[in-house]
Simulated scan of single mutants.
Amino acid sequence: MHATASNAVTTLERPAEAGRTTKDARNDRIFGWVLKACALLVLLSLIGAAGSTLWLGQDAFRTFGWGFLTSAAWDPSNDQYGALVPIMGTVGTAFIALLVAVPISFGIALFLTEIAPQWLRGPVASAIELLAGIPSIIYGMWGLFIFAPFVATHIKPWLMHAFGTDVLEPGQPATGLARFFTSDYAFFGAGVLTAGLVLAVMIIPFISSVMREVFQTVPTRLKESAYALGSSTWEVVWDIVVPYTRTAVIGGVFLGLGRALGETMAVAFVLGNTFKFSLSFLETGSSIASTIANQFGEAEGLQRSSLMAIAFLLFVVTFIVLLIARLMLRRLATKEGN
């Protein structure tokens, strides 16, 4: 009698369990579809943005061909456009920014995780996060009114005297290393170098924050074991911390590079916005983002198409940078045996 009652209860429970299992499976499928739609939406947005800029810039590519990439001309009055100066300005400022920001960010992150006393770590970390939250236009105004005069007074003359030549006469050629450290206007602080240094200040908070977070993931027992074996702080950092977090550190560096490549307002204030091709870091120039911001409002016809074409080229440059980052990370993972 007791066994019969138990079987009856089990028989009643099985349909309920089967229904609940079917409902859970359906909910899991719906949840998976929603997540897939979110991922595809990001991908479609990226493809749509790149495709639209390519479509709207096809007149420029059709008119100038491959010469659009190698021409330094930008003359709206004669409808002559070339992307060389904006591309060089974008790459040059981002290169200077990384050259300055990466060592400083590395030092900040190591100081906060390995050396700084506990009472100092919180205020310094908060200050870094505050710098990351400042709008870019504020950096641009600071660069134009405060930093650019300082560059013109102190940094630019010293670089010209130490590595280049003094102010050149118009048309006088520079050779060798002097080509990178000459300027026709020593009194003018805006230029590629100034824009790169301002960008470095802007991306330091991003790179240092990522480095600090990944440095904190290193197991304490690994560092304590190294110290117990007599290793110095530098040896622990170089032999334990850096190898353990190398992949994430490179990812943080490329995150800062992506910010530097696409920055607009801060660069527009301090770059000079001139379409003059020069290898010198002390000369003025133009970037892709600043060119679009300055000229898109009144652009028409072929000029607007040229602006959309260089916008597509910015997509291409960013994609190449991310591709290089992926290849580097994959190569590091292969060396580590993953």
Rank of each mutant, 00 (worst) to 15 (best):
W74Q: 06
G92K: 12
L120K: 10
G176A: 06
L112F: 05
T175C: 04
L54N: 03
W55S: 14
A132V: 00
G107H: 06
G171L: 12
P76Q: 08
A148V: 00
A162I: 08
M160Y: 11
S77A: 14
D75Q: 11
G82L: 08
H154Q: 13
G92C: 07
G107D: 05
D166W: 15
I134N: 07
F188P: 02
F68C: 04
L99S: 13
S52L: 15
A72I: 05
I96R: 08
P123I: 02
Q58C: 12
F150A: 15
L130Q: 11
A127W: 00
A127E: 02
I104M: 01
R179T: 02
A148C: 08
T70P: 02
K156H: 00
R62N: 09
G51D: 13
L69G: 03
V167G: 12
P76F: 04
K156E: 03
G51Y: 11
T153H: 07
S77L: 13
S105H: 05
F95R: 00
A72G: 11
L131P: 03
V124Q: 12
S183K: 04
E114F: 05
S52A: 15
I108Y: 09
H161P: 00
W119L: 12
G176E: 05
L120H: 08
A127F: 13
A116D: 11
W55L: 14
T113H: 09
L84A: 10
V102S: 08
A97R: 03
V85Q: 00
T70F: 12
A174E: 09
P103F: 06
P103R: 05
F147E: 05
I96A: 10
A97E: 01
A178S: 15
A178T: 05
Q80H: 13
Q172E: 15
N78W: 08
P135V: 05
F95N: 05
S71E: 09
V167P: 13
F68Q: 04
M141I: 14
A116G: 10
I96K: 09
G82T: 09
F106W: 11
P123F: 01
V151L: 10
T153G: 07
S126Y: 08
G140Q: 01
L159D: 08
R121H: 07
F106T: 15
I138Q: 01
D75R: 12
Q58P: 02
A148E: 00
G107T: 11
L168M: 13
V91S: 10
P117G: 13
F181T: 04
A148F: 01
L112V: 13
A127S: 15
G82K: 02
I138N: 02
E129A: 14
G67P: 05
A132T: 00
G140T: 00
R62S: 15
S71V: 10
P173I: 00
T53F: 14
T53P: 07
Q80T: 11
A50L: 11
E129N: 15
A60M: 03
S126G: 11
I104P: 03
V151S: 09
